[in-house]
């Protein structure tokens, strides 16, 4: 049977030291067995490396930041749709998910499919609501508190012991060993990501991640756990290895069954010295290390596209354990004209 060719737009082309997942997602889509692809990159900045990776990305369009509002994004996507006849969009940033979820219906009427969590799922898993999430679904989470202003910082030592984690609502986390550090991180993080800031109990242990895919009915379509082996100063995995931990897989299946999660996700987990697992965060999108899942036999982006297109998919039941990913950086040589094209005209 002839494979269809799908026009798929992907964001998160910033393959930098704190990488977006876009380039890994595209590599996965290029290896899809069930369809061929024409890849349209959607970028926010002119120096996102994926824009210039012409063997992976056929054409790139800049799109407005989420802060510019949903209307502007929709207008831009209408323009792109006229030119590219997109079948699917895969948004890869937490911060852009809200506008894309809001636009899901409108985009569908234009022929663009997505496979995203519902707004309720998206809000419920927000780290601001992690305590309630843990209680509701019977999943162990570290104690956390949401703070909106510096005046409440002084009461923290009565509720948390040092060190404690200071987290931004979208990204960033720092370990604070004193009230002075909490204040300093509060100011830094709130200036960058806005309010509130989250204070979280520090769990001593080893960090693990699980990526996977839920079909929206509670079924686990894919799940691959990974241990970070090499971590950058920004806390990002620069190397990792697939593992086989039944407890982690059980927690993942429980998360999917109870929330009926729809779409890709990444669970950030901490295992303490007694072997207890804590759920630190749920990222409502595929992670930057998603290509490891492809490498171990679960092409999650491919299946996500098939679900978006309304096809029936078969859940993955196995993966290779002990496979590693080792990330690297690579200098591309780029003509100034290309930079000019994307910077001045928003297309390349």
């Amino acid at each position: 049977m002839k494979k269809p060719t799908l026009n798929i737009a992907v964001t998160g082309l910033n393959a930098i030291d704190s990488p977006g997942p876009g380039v890994s997602v595209i590599r996965a889509l290029r290896e899809a067995a069930s369809f061929n692809t024409r890849i349209i990159g959607l970028s926010y900045e002119s120096l996102e490396p994926g824009i210039y990776m012409h063997d992976l990305v056929d054409r790139t369009y800049s799109i407005p930041y989420p802060t510019a509002g949903i209307d502007l994004l929709f207008e831009r996507l209408q323009y792109i749709q006229e030119k590219e006849k997109l079948d699917v969009i895969i948004p890869n940033f937490d911060a852009e998910l809200y506008p894309f979820i809001k636009l899901e219906h409108n985009l569908k009427t234009m022929g663009i499919h997505m496979f995203l969590p519902t707004l309720h799922q998206f809000e419920e898993r927000n780290k601001v609501n992690l305590n309630d999430f843990g209680k509701k679904y019977g999943i162990k989470v570290p104690k956390s508190k949401v703070i909106y202003d510096l005046s409440t910082v002084h009461s923290l030592p009565s509720e948390f012991s040092f060190p404690m984690i200071v987290k931004g609502k979208f990204y960033d986390a720092s370990i604070a060993y004193s009230i002075e550090q909490v204040k300093s991180y509060f100011n830094k993080i709130s200036a960058k990501w806005g309010l509130p800031v989250i204070i979280q109990e520090f769990i001593h242990g080893t960090e693990f991640n699980v990526t996977g895919l839920g079909d929206g009915t509670g079924k686990t379509i894919a799940a691959v756990p990974m241990r970070k082996q090499y971590i950058t100063d920004k806390g990002k995995a620069w190397g990792g290895i697939s593992i086989s931990d039944e407890k982690m897989l059980d927690m993942t299946r429980k998360f999917l069954r109870n929330t009926k999660w729809r779409g890709g996700f990444e669970l950030e987990l901490m295992k303490n010295k007694d072997g207890e697992l804590y759920l630190l965060e749920i990222n409502p999108r595929l992670p930057a290390w998603i290509y490891l899942a492809v490498g171990v036999g679960q092409n999650i982006p491919e299946v996500l596209v098939n679900l978006a297109m309304g096809h029936t998919v078969k859940p993955f039941t196995e993966y290779a354990v002990g496979k590693m990913f080792v990330r690297y950086s690579w200098d591309m040589i780029v003509d100034r004209e290309e930079f000019e094209q994307i910077s001045m005209y928003g297309e390349l």
Partner: peptide, 19 residues
């Protein structure tokens, strides 16, 4: 049972990912 030991002496624990 699940701990892998290679001839060269590398141990891999597939549950924790440690070598």
């Amino acid at each position: 049972k699940n701990v892998a030991v290679s001839e060269s002496g590398l141990l891999f624990n597939p549950v924790t990912g440690e070598s």
